[in-house]
């Protein structure tokens, strides 16, 4: 059985999890095994019904009184116990911040290897993966040797597929893990919500950049007008009119920032100056983003 973690935040699913399910569906077909999903916390239960359209035949709903918000160690321990209970052979999550985090905790607890940000998998023996390196500008073909294969799926490696020829009925199976206080030592204790109407760079659907070509801080006026007209967001700037100092302007070995920039996945309107950290300035960010238009 192939098990996919459907990530959510207080009951709201992460779209990258649906891409992961599309990846898992192909994998399940290749292995001739069912695709099942795990949802953590009863708050996520309403998501279960929609997963049949993504090829999921069964949803394991993790229940625990303390699972009211994100707690990575508790999520991981629950999955570890579920693996032992179900005999899952492949466990996967989206290559999101949380997906990678939870799967790394699962891997650490089970003392098994994990391949992050996979774009392809060959479920033979040994299990082979192709995974992203250098923020997606390079690929690695690798084999995973472990009793249970643990992987995360790179964002946008596959498209979500919610229109199966034969929709499947989803059975919901409650699972009550044994979690100690120790598993909740890391949990979200507070939140600072974004002001209403703001869009972060990582959520922006479209990023418009204005680089040094605008000439000076005053030259950003056109972008600022566009922000006002289209309800966009302008990042914080310094006195030079740069959102964050452009790292690649530095006259030294840091000529190009390396592969950590890949958050431009689902852009909304986000006019940004070229130079925003983690955005369109880096080849890795460009490669993995969609619709970034550096100015």
């Amino acid at each position: 059985m192939i098990l996919g973690l459907v990530e959510h935040d207080r009951g709201r699913p992460n779209d990258l999890s649906f891409q992961m399910l599309a990846f898992g569906r192909r994998l399940a077909a290749g292995r001739g095994e069912p695709l099942e999903a795990v949802l953590i916390g009863t708050e996520a239960e309403p998501i279960a019904g929609a997963l049949g359209a993504h090829g999921v035949s069964k949803v394991h709903l993790i229940r625990h009184d303390e699972l009211t918000d994100y707690a990575p160690e508790a999520w991981a321990e629950a999955i570890v116990q579920l693996i032992a209970s179900t005999g899952a052979t492949v466990v996967m999550a989206a290559g999101s911040d949380r997906g990678n985090e939870v799967m790394a905790h699962v891997a650490a607890r089970t003392e098994m290897p994990m391949a992050s940000n996979c774009v392809a998998a060959d479920p033979g023996d040994p299990f082979q993966v192709t995974r992203q390196r250098w923020g997606g500008t390079l690929l690695e073909e690798a084999v995973l040797r472990a009793p249970v294969t643990l992987i995360t799926v790179a964002p946008h490696a596959v498209q979500a597929d919610s229109s199966p020829a034969t929709p499947t009925e989803v059975a919901v199976a409650p699972f009550d893990p044994n979690l100690s206080e120790q598993e909740f030592r890391v949990r979200v204790t507070d939140r600072v919500e974004k002001p209403a109407g703001q869009t972060s760079l990582s959520e922006a659907r479209v990023v418009v950049g204005g680089g040094r070509g605008v000439g000076s801080a005053a030259g950003f006026g056109a972008l600022e007008q566009a922000v006002g007209r289209h309800r966009g967001v302008l990042p914080r700037r310094n006195q030079r009119g740069v959102a964050y100092p452009r790292r690649s302007d530095r006259p030294d070995r840091r000529a190009h920032r390396s592969g950590s920039v890949h958050r431009l996945r689902d852009q909304r309107r986000h006019p940004a100056h070229r130079g925003v950290q983690g955005s369109e300035t880096h080849p890795g960010g460009q490669h993995r983003s969609r619709g970034a238009h550096p100015g």
């Binding site: 790394a104 905790h105 650490a108 992050s116 995974r131 390196r133 250098w134 390396s258 950590s260």
Partner: peptide
């Protein structure tokens, strides 16, 4: 670092913590 620039494994810190 959250992940190494070259290998992008996302797990060394967590394994050490564990």
């Amino acid at each position: 670092g959250n992940e190494a620039a070259d290998s992008g494994d996302y797990q060394v810190g967590i394994r050490v913590a564990r």
